[in-house]
Design a protein around this nucleic acid. Structure first.
Lengths: 144, 144
DNA sequence: CATTGACTCTATAGCAGCTACGGAGTTTTT
DNA sequence: AAAAACTCCGTAGCTGCTATAGAGTCAATG
């Protein structure tokens, strides 16, 4: 199949497929006389694999590693397990960070519940650092 | 103060300060005869404001908007409130996405609890898409 | 007073992971 | 035969920095 068909089959923009080739995730493939790329099922499966990993938010580097293991089925997969564990670790750290953030933002939002002049806006004032102590906890101006 | 001192005062790399200037977040500032940037307290506060926002994961575009309101204290701050609400929305969406991801990754991880040959690795096989149905739920090879 | 070291300047390139051009050639459809 | 749709390549853009290179400036030391 040609690149456009592959693009459809894997729901991936054509540009991205070429990008993956350049990035070394997809091998350089056969070409027609007129220099069009031609793909087979194996390549499509490989691309689907990549996309699946991307949907799990893996980096291209991580995916490269996984592909190496796929390409050498005799090797021991311990590193794959490690990678996934590490990835899970990153994700859960990020979740905690974002939950923290969410809490801070909501607290901040409380400081200006209604529209008013910017100079009195609790949010702007809250962001106008003075003490770097708590996570924006020190209330400044409030509605109540 | 010179840029290096400001950098210390706001715990921000010198390069980043210059970057913020180029990006229009910090105004072009006065210079010494020898073309060194000179900053006052106002600029330092502005930088601290920016950094505080960044720690809340706001984009530079969002921060630019907030700065506009800070710069015109007479205006109504409704848009500030909107921005924060929208930002909270983004963050909580992202949290949900990541929680989903975490669940998927953990499920995937279960499919290969011990090291073995790559060809038998439940993770690699699980990622080797076949049906795009569930969130990687279809168990393939398992340890038990 | 000369030299070293720390600082500053600008301009430019790099990171990730694409996305979007522009301009040319090819293939398919009408 | 002409038009539409596809493909090619190279390059530039996005975000928010970070890291060079090469030059100039300033403070402290020998």
């Amino acid at each position: 199949m040609k690149i456009g068909e592959l693009a459809k089959a894997a729901d991936t923009p054509v540009e991205t497929i070429r990008y993956y080739e350049r990035a070394g995730l997809l091998p350089e493939t056969a070409r027609t006389e007129s220099n069009y790329r031609i793909y087979g099922e194996a390549q499509r499966d490989r691309l689907l694999f990549i996309r699946r990993c991307r949907r799990l938010d893996m980096t291209l580097d991580e995916i490269r590693l996984l592909l190496r293991f796929k390409d050498s089925p005799d090797e021991n997969c311990a590193q794959v397990n490690e990678l996934i564990d590490a990835h899970i670790g990153h994700v859960s750290v990020r979740i905690k960070e974002l939950e923290n953030l969410e809490r801070q933002l909501k607290t901040l939002r409380q400081t200006c519940r209604e529209a008013r002049e910017s100079r009195q806006c609790g949010i702007l004032n809250g962001l106008s650092a003075s003490q770097e102590s708590g996570p924006l906890m020190g209330r400044t101006t409030t509605d109540d």
